[in-house]
Amino acid sequence: MEWLMAIVIGVMTSAGVYLTLRARTFPVVLGLTLLAYAVNVFLFVMGRLTIGQPAVIDAAATGYADPLPQALVLTAIVIAFGMTAFLIVLALKARGEMGNDHVDGLHLADDERLVEQTPSQTSQETKL
């Protein structure tokens, strides 16, 4: 079962890395989500894989599952969920403000020209 978990985490991580490196914001969001899934499973596995063991004190138990990673994963899931929600809203805002969903906004040359247009025009006006 360790092998299966390792492969699952590996595939999710590599897919996440691949998507995060894409140039559009939506795949980046998906990639970060996949990375978050991978790290959640990874954290969970770090308490070692045990089956059918209680996590809290039980008089009849012969052994225990590690309860701490479960608590950590719960926290990590909540945080990742909130962050993803924020990132989606931010990606939408960027899409609205920059005109497309490229992570760098418009083509770089257009971007520079837009920035430089305003001051150069006005400085000519002041010279006149």
Binding site: T20, L32, A36, V39, F42, L43, M46, G47, A80, M83
Partner: peptide, 21 residues
């Protein structure tokens, strides 16, 4: 800034998990 810090958070969890393990 947000994306690079989210990746940083993920790496943080990987490191914390490995150290805990």
């Amino acid at each position: 800034y947000v994306v690079i810090n989210l990746i940083g958070s993920t790496l943080f969890l990987f490191a914390v998990g490995a150290l805990y393990g």
